[in-house]
Amino acid sequence: MIKGSIVAIVTPMYPDGAIDWDSLLALVEWHVTEGTDAIVAVGTTGESATLDVDEHIDVIRRTVKQVKGRVPVIAGTGANATAEAIELTQMAKDAGADAALLVTPYYNKPPQEGLFRHYKAVADAVALPQILYNVPGRTGCDMLPATVARLAKLPNIVGLKEAKGELSRIRELLDADLGDDFAIYSGDDATACESILMGCHGDISVTANVAPRQMHEMCAAALAGDRVRAERIDQELRALHRDLFVEPNPIPVKWALNEMNKIPAGLRLPLVALDTAHYDTVRAALRTAGVL
């Protein structure tokens, strides 16, 4: 079971939108040396929605090659068409990913039975550990705990990233019959510390992009049940948890990494550069966390 701070890593780009492969590999190396426990390649924060299939798989392949087995690599392979999700998951397995992260189908709003059949089809088709991903604020689709419990019985569905941002949902999941080997990850940095103290196994994080060491230490303390230390570290990061979302992710976090001289200032349309009105806010959050 993967535990701890799992970064949903950005995909660095030049101002013209081309992928900056050198910066990607440097970021991966930085995360490994700073203690990040696992890396999600090509998730929401990695701009999966605007990468073509070749780029998508190339990011996964290059990340795996750079990691060299030192930490797990989880590939984002979700899609709103089941056949496409199966294809991406198989390609991620072939590229060497240790697991896949599959967001609920977006826009088409499947019912709970449709969600179950979608994920079961992917699990049946590809022998790779798979993590469900619920983020209704982006997808317009909320996977309920009862559906998660049905899916948890499938052997290669091994976990859930829950990004609804409500501790009541985390408690409902922790109280459900999901099995001892099923992992629950927070997908909301603002509530991740408390979620882990409640019993979650880690955080799939945006904040970890800019504060990998602190996020690793916070998650480790929370997993050990050290509330005082976990909350102290989390308090230093609270401005980041909040202000990295002053505009839609990954706009602020990519601006922050550029400010830290880690990546160029590139995004792909329809995303645009951070509004200048937010520069001082994000910069202050970086300074409060001690990373700028």
Rank of each mutant, 00 (worst) to 15 (best):
D124M: 14
W255I: 12
D188C: 07
R232H: 11
M1W: 05
D203A: 13
K164F: 10
Q214Y: 09
M91P: 00
G46W: 08
M198P: 08
Y119V: 15
K93D: 01
A81G: 06
A97F: 09
Q214W: 05
G96M: 07
I157D: 00
G159K: 01
V228E: 15
A121H: 02
E55P: 10
I9D: 00
D52F: 02
N156A: 07
Y107D: 04
I196T: 06
I57P: 02
V246Q: 00
R268M: 08
L160P: 15
G96Y: 03
I74E: 00
P111R: 05
R150M: 01
L223M: 11
A265T: 00
L154T: 11
L244Q: 01
Y185H: 10
V291R: 08
V40H: 05
E194Q: 15
T89E: 01
D189L: 14
L132P: 13
A220M: 10
P264D: 07
E34M: 12
G76L: 08
N156E: 04
K120S: 14
A152G: 09
A125R: 05
K65S: 10
S23V: 11
L144P: 06
D234N: 14
L292T: 05
D16V: 10
V71L: 06
I196W: 02
R229W: 15
D58Q: 13
S195V: 07
D58F: 04
V206P: 08
E87R: 04
V135Q: 11
I74Y: 00
I184Q: 05
K109S: 11
H241E: 02
A277C: 13
L240E: 02
L174S: 03
V246L: 08
A85G: 03
A26C: 14
A149C: 13
A125F: 11
V246M: 01
V282C: 07
A176T: 02
I196E: 02
G140V: 15
T11E: 00
V126F: 05
E47H: 07
A121C: 06
I9G: 03
D37K: 02
R213E: 12
V122Y: 01
T139E: 13
L244M: 07
D20V: 07
S195H: 01
L197R: 11
S48Y: 05
C141G: 03
D54L: 15
N80F: 03
K3N: 09
A163Q: 05
E162G: 02
G69N: 07
A121D: 15
A230R: 05
V253K: 00
L102M: 05
K153Y: 04
L88D: 09
P110W: 03
V246S: 01
T45D: 04
L223S: 06
D243V: 09
G96N: 11
D226A: 07
L101C: 05
E259A: 10
R283H: 14
R268E: 02
A123C: 11
T104F: 00
D58V: 12
H278G: 09
T50D: 01
G290I: 15
V71A: 03
N249H: 09
K262C: 12
V126I: 07
Y107R: 10
G140W: 11
L151K: 04
A100Q: 08
P72M: 07
L25K: 10
E162M: 03
G140D: 10
A92Y: 02
L223V: 00
D181R: 15
H278L: 13
L257P: 11
V253T: 03
E236K: 06
G165I: 14
S23K: 06
G159S: 06
L244Y: 01
E259F: 12
